[in-house]
Simulated assay, not measured.
Amino acid sequence: MRSRDMQATLRQDPVGSHPRAVGRSGRCTRTPRPPPTVGDVESLGAFLKSRRDRVTPALVGLRTHGSARRVPGLRREELAQLAGVSAGYYTRLEQGQAESASAQVLDALARALQLDGVETAHLHNLARQPSGGRLSEPPPEDPHPRVLALLQALGDTPAIVLGRRGDVLAWNRAGHALRAEHVDFEAPADPDRRPSVPRMFFLDPLTRDMHRNWSEVARAHIAFLRLTAGRYPTDARLAELIGELSMRSPEFATMWAEGEVADCTVGTMELRHPTVGDASVTYQVWLQPDSPDHRLEIYTPDDPASADALQVLVGGW
């Protein structure tokens, strides 16, 4: 890897021009509100309803006899029948009035709703959430030394290390140049200044303009955030992030309400990079055994023109 300092080659925007795209959200004086609790981000009932709404009777082989329907998908009693539970019990479960649901019941609901493996795991995660539990400050995230050594060994291959909430914990020079050359290269070293990829996607115009398939990639970020919220329901910083984006980005709020959940480990980014122009790259996520919450994301070109663009990018520092 070249050792020239990238700072001289970066296009620097005015200080303070992107105050909310990185780090934690700002604070101001406002009327005190009750502290958020587990389930404020998403409840078991809300997820069940969102999945029920997308399953039509025809999809599961139910006859409707031509009667008018007031719901977009299955009725509660229809889903209960398919899952082999009473309509009253399912109604209480969706309304948050049932104390618990067994793994067998959850699996039956997942089959009736035609959930995939990731959605089924998310359903089980939501069912294990403590009712009315308090959020807590999570422990600090630090990349494992072996991950940093691997990052260094990748040389000119762009790569970044992401934490559970999408914070950039580390990046190599090529990864920084590809993903966010307008952000201070040293920012990931400071936990309070770490770039937040979800915030950048929805609150930073430069990041949005750089992605030609912004909507597709943005939905992938939301789907993974939802999965993470099910895994870590007491994470106060995660709840803060989702709440902030819901309030400040109507597009985030709309996409979040769709209820999609996925473990996005591979995909394509169609870029219009401010330095090298159009490029198409594939991202691949490698999970880390020493720190399973952390994801090493590596970017490879999809075609010769994109490969040339990446060579020009890394050749500039």
Score class of each variant (00 low, 15 high):
Asp40Ser: 08
Gly66Ser: 05
Asp156Ile: 06
Glu240His: 03
Gly277Asp: 14
Phe224Asn: 09
Tyr283Trp: 15
Glu141Thr: 03
Ser280Thr: 15
Ala309Thr: 08
Leu154Asp: 07
Pro198His: 07
Tyr299His: 10
Arg226Ala: 15
Cys264Ile: 13
Arg11Asn: 13
Trp317Ser: 10
Glu251Cys: 07
Leu93Gly: 01
Val281Met: 03
Arg212Met: 08
Gly316Glu: 13
Gln95Glu: 12
Ala236Met: 00
Gly117Cys: 06
Arg193Gly: 02
Arg63Ser: 15
Glu137Asn: 06
Gly133Asp: 08
Ser246His: 13
Val312Thr: 12
Ala257Met: 05
Pro191Ser: 04
Ala236Gly: 00
Ser306Gly: 11
His273Gly: 01
Asp184Tyr: 02
Glu240Leu: 02
Leu48Glu: 04
Pro195Phe: 03
His182Lys: 06
Tyr299Cys: 04
Leu287Asp: 14
Arg63Leu: 15
Ser291Leu: 08
Ile222Arg: 06
Thr268Trp: 14
Pro138Tyr: 13
Arg54Cys: 14
Arg30Tyr: 11
Met269Asp: 10
Ser25Asp: 12
Ala127Ser: 15
Leu135Gln: 05
Tyr90Asn: 07
Pro205Trp: 09
Trp171Arg: 13
Leu150Ser: 04
Asp290Glu: 15
Ala189Met: 05
Cys28Leu: 13
Gly96Asn: 02
Ala229Leu: 04
Gly132Phe: 04
Ser50Ala: 15
Ala110Phe: 11
Pro188Ser: 05
Lys49Leu: 11
Ala223Pro: 07
Cys264Asp: 11
Gln311Pro: 00
Gly96Leu: 07
Pro233Thr: 07
Val71Gly: 00
Gly133Pro: 00
Glu181His: 14
Glu77Gln: 00
